[in-house]
Computed example of a mutant assay.
Amino acid sequence: MDPNTYSYNYEVLENNVGFTYCKSSFKVVPIDGDEALGSQIEWTYVSDPFEGKTPDHLSDYFNTNLQAMAKSIKKYLEPKC
């Protein structure tokens, strides 16, 4: 984790999902380079596909999980009444 660049890197070494290799990073950056517009999360990964599955399956898997994480982050950032 690098708090100066608002980034985090990690590798999946063991799992019960089907990865044989996955290295990921994400960072928070200003939207279109303009902090006044807000922030967005850029996430990248390098991974072997799941055995017996297409690359689209892996992409769909990550997309589903990222949407769930984004929803959780948004909920956490909402003002508490």
Rank of each mutant, 00 (worst) to 15 (best):
E51T: 15
P55T: 07
S47E: 07
L77V: 09
V29G: 00
V17N: 04
G18S: 09
G38M: 06
V12H: 01
E78K: 11
G18K: 04
D2R: 02
T5Y: 03
F26P: 05
P3Q: 06
F50W: 08
I41M: 06
V12D: 06
N4H: 08
Y61V: 09
N4M: 04
Y8R: 02
G33D: 07
V29M: 03
F50G: 05
Y76S: 08
G38W: 07
T64S: 06
Y21M: 12
E78A: 15
G38C: 06
N63P: 00
K71L: 14
N65Y: 08
D34G: 02
Q40V: 07
M1Q: 12
L58D: 05
K27Y: 00
C22D: 13
D48K: 06
D2T: 05
N65G: 13
L37A: 11
G52I: 08
V46N: 10
S25Y: 05
S47M: 10
N16A: 05
N63M: 08
E11M: 12
E78T: 11
N9H: 08
N63V: 13
A36N: 12
K80W: 04
W43M: 04
E35Y: 03
N15W: 02
Y8L: 15
T64R: 01
D48L: 14
E11A: 15
E35L: 13
N4E: 15
K27W: 00
A36T: 14
K23R: 08
C81M: 03
D32Y: 01
I73V: 14
D2S: 09
I73S: 02
Y76G: 11
K74R: 14
P30H: 11
T20Y: 02
N15R: 05
T54Y: 00
Y6S: 14
Y8W: 09
S72P: 01
G52Y: 03
N65V: 10
L13T: 14
K74W: 02
I73N: 00
D60A: 12
L58R: 02
E42S: 01
K71E: 15
K74D: 13
K23A: 13
S47H: 02
Y10C: 11
V28M: 10
M1R: 00
K75H: 02
S7H: 01
Q67S: 12
E11D: 15
F26I: 09
T20Q: 05
S7F: 08
V29K: 00
E51Q: 07
E78L: 13
Q40H: 07
N9G: 10
Q40A: 11
G38T: 11
Y76L: 14
L58I: 03
A36V: 15
V29L: 10
P79Q: 13
E11L: 08
V29Y: 00
P55C: 03
K27S: 08
T5S: 11
I31F: 01
Q67A: 10
T54V: 03
P30C: 07
